[in-house]
């Protein structure tokens, strides 16, 4: 058989496949979750195993306000997507801006917490197992927040310059998926570090 056999065939049914972007983001989230699980397992495994102080009970305070900020940014990013979907571009910018702001507050609160811990409580990643697992888990999450904020800021920039249209809804939705994931992870981190670990 030296000739190529091609099988053209007019599709009888509508051939609909899922969106690439969303599938890819779902995969990425799956992979990222696995990374977080390992860090969480390490955290839980080492709770109370530090050979020297300070202990979580002595130095950690519940970050209630910043957590509320981060979690509500999930809502705002959702509204941003809806707004874009309905071609309300001004609203979209507004919601995006709010999201970035809330995320920024969270990040600032984390920075403050770390500053306190390092300079007042003398807890660094080298101090003990608590420091090791705390900074790496919270830091890993914070890194994700930073990445998310960067992308959201880009989106905001495009949106402000009028480059974001309802054609881009899917892309913004993919980004919002990531942001929801970052928020969901925070719930786990919060429970493990500030509730269970204390």
């Amino acid at each position: 058989m030296s000739e190529t056999a091609v099988i053209p065939h007019s599709p009888t049914e509508v051939w609909k496949l899922p969106s690439r972007g969303i599938v890819a983001m779902a995969c990425l989230i799956l992979a990222e979750s696995a990374i977080f699980i390992i860090f969480v397992v390490a955290y839980v495994f080492y709770i109370g195993k530090s050979v020297s102080g300070p202990t979580p009970r002595e130095v950690l305070e519940l970050p209630i306000f910043s957590s509320i900020c981060l979690l509500s940014s999930s809502l705002t990013v959702h509204f941003a997507v809806s707004a874009l979907h309905d071609s309300k571009r001004g609203m979209c910018s507004l919601w995006l801006g709010l999201t970035v702001l809330l995320g920024g507050i969270f990040l600032a609160a984390t920075a403050r917490e770390w500053y306190q811990l390092i300079y007042h409580d003398g807890l660094t990643i080298k101090t003990n197992l608590f420091g090791t697992t705390y900074y790496s888990l919270v830091g890993l999450h914070a890194t994700h927040v930073v990445v998310g904020l960067f992308m959201l800021s880009l989106a905001l920039l495009f949106s402000l310059r009028g480059g974001l249209t309802s054609n881009h809804t899917e892309r913004l939705e993919v980004l919002s998926l990531y942001w929801h994931f970052v928020d969901a992870v925070w719930i786990v981190v919060f429970l493990v570090v500030y509730v269970l670990g204390r």
């Binding site: 992979a31 979750s33 696995a34 990374i35 860090f39 990643i125 090791t132 697992t133 790496s136």
Partner: peptide, 20 residues
């Protein structure tokens, strides 16, 4: 991903002196 996580921990151990 778990391997990646473990490698990150190992790197932290070796570079910044954490104790995983």
């Amino acid at each position: 991903s778990p391997l990646t996580a473990a490698q990150i921990m190992l790197m932290l151990d070796r570079y910044v002196g954490s104790h995983f």
